[in-house]
Amino acid sequence: MSEQTPVVVRNVSKTFKDVKALDDVDLQLDSHKIYGLLGRNGAGKTTLMSILTGQGFPDAGEVKVFGHTPFEHDGTLSRICFIRESQKYPDEYKAFQAFKAAALFFENWDEQLAQELIADFNLPLKRKIKKLSRGQLSAVGVVIGLASRAEVTFFDEPYLGLDAVARQIFYDRLVEDFAEYPRTIVLSSHLIDEVANLLEHVIIIDSGRIVMDEDAESLQGAAVTISGKADVVAEFIANYPVIHRDSLGALASVSIQQRLTPAQQAEARELGLELSPMSLQQLVVRTAMGRNVLATPQEQTKERASWNA
């Protein structure tokens, strides 16, 4: 059981001072899947990953990784890799020394893959880590995360500071290596479009709560935006669940959560309406994270506080 579902989270809560960073989280992660852990900054992504990797601990609830509580359990920890977005390295360390350490601790470490990635990212091995650019620092984390081949690997906003080329390298290498060595991978991100096609499953967290936990497939093409004359649009969408409305004079643009059949699509075009599919990013912003758009000032302060948590 624990081999197919290496990570099980039950009723986990965590509070920092008066901020609820995690609120009764229930979750499970299966083996051999790429997950997207999506949410705004401060939504609780890092707190959740910290607890899953034994770097943090919950106030309430239970976390099991490979059947054990990961906190202080060496046997479990050795099968997990989590490099923080704000990872600290020993002051005097040069990049190659960080990789040397990683090779010591991660049992599945693949030195050849590490070397290839280092070449791909053009990482200066002999430079001190604290002198690296933000992008190079992210690349160090990406190299460790990929080359560790840990059975459960977390990537925390891995693309920060990486340019388009480097990000593409990361995505390509990730898909390639995952195909050959399937494992549980969690991509934590607040940018969704770039990674959307890589994900098999999407988990969205908002203000410490899991607000969506679905297969990516069920979300692709699940919503569509219809625009045209306001009255025509209104008539067409009458029976569908509306996610979002925009209007400009006599024109309206309405997003509905509904898969349209080819016949329905044809009908819409016949009415002079334009259809455009909603991207995962838009869908997520409009549904799961939409609640926060009109958040009260108190809630906004609360969220800002949880940034620091």
């Binding site: 051999h32 899947k33 790429i34 995505y171 390509d172 898909v175 390639e176 995952f178 195909a179 050959e180 399937p182 096609n197 890589l198 994900l199 098999e200 990516a216 497939e217």
Partner: peptide
């Protein structure tokens, strides 16, 4: 192969397999 498709289109291998 599935993996070649996945790498080429930058999609999840499970999706390509499906």
């Amino acid at each position: 192969s599935t993996n070649e498709f996945a790498a080429f289109y930058r999609i999840n291998p499970a999706t390509a397999a499906k």
